[in-house]
Amino acid sequence: MNRHLISAGDLAKDDALLILDTAEELASVSERSIKKLPTLRGRTVVNLFFEDSTRTRISFEAAAKRLSADVINFSAKGSSVSKGESLKDTALTLEAMGADAVVIRHGSSGAPHRLATWVHGSVVNAGDGTHEHPTQALLDAFSMRRRLGGLEGRKVTIVGDVLHSRVARSNVLLLHTLGAEVTLVAPPTLLPVSVGSWPCEVSYDLDAVLPKSDVVMMLRVQKERMNAAYFPSEREYSRRYGLDRDRFAKMPDDAIVMHPGPMNRGMEIAAEVADSARSTIVEQVANGVTIRMAVLYLLLGGESA
């Protein structure tokens, strides 16, 4: 494995499977009464969050604490960053505090990549701009594998705002590595120009793709990033690309529904679909802690680089 986890595309198939298998063994830790392992005792993990993301930060924090690492949470609001400190100076400060790993969430694509050139510890990308979110893709793959048994040859459909979604890009790269076939479904305005070079299919017609899908992953409509008119109205989007009860009925009986959260119920996904037994949305949260434990263990559990 690399020393950093910046992109899901950096993971070879063996690396990805090692992370999933490690997570499989660690899953039982969340079920026992003492949910703690001594493995990362004395190591320091810094959560460096320049964007708000309560669930991802908490998930990384829980994962690090279950491995007995010391956790320092650093959020940009009210910190030296709001006083004008550069990313590099922030990084050097954290380095001086002895951070063994930096988990970074940043609004600019590529920030974790830059950070990795400045610090000696491991850098874990917890979402950068519209680029990548590799641990989300790993937990999604883990959730799929637990429900479906395997990923080889499985048909995964990712629906929604691919343009602004780091989850979609990371998932396409990782699922392709793991042998699944990914189809992206979105209005043409919400697909990036480069999508033709991604290892996946593209469709504009959700109803045609649903009956052939083993997994349907709905992406959140990111209202905060909608600075232009990407679609005429929310209602029209919901009609054409929302997963409602009728569309849910068209899916194969054993197909599952996923959503990285937070959801807009009634917009991209109907409440009754989100709450059905075939929805993995709550599992995905629990699996998030497990997969992040696996990543932190594999990056920090061995000899120091």
């Binding site: 493995t39 263990y297 559990g301 061995g302 000899e303 120091s304």
Partner: peptide, 13 residues
């Protein structure tokens, strides 16, 4: 996960 020599080798499966 309980070994005392974890830091002597790369992370083990």
């Amino acid at each position: 996960m309980y070994r005392d020599d974890l830091r002597l080798k790369p992370a083990r499966p």
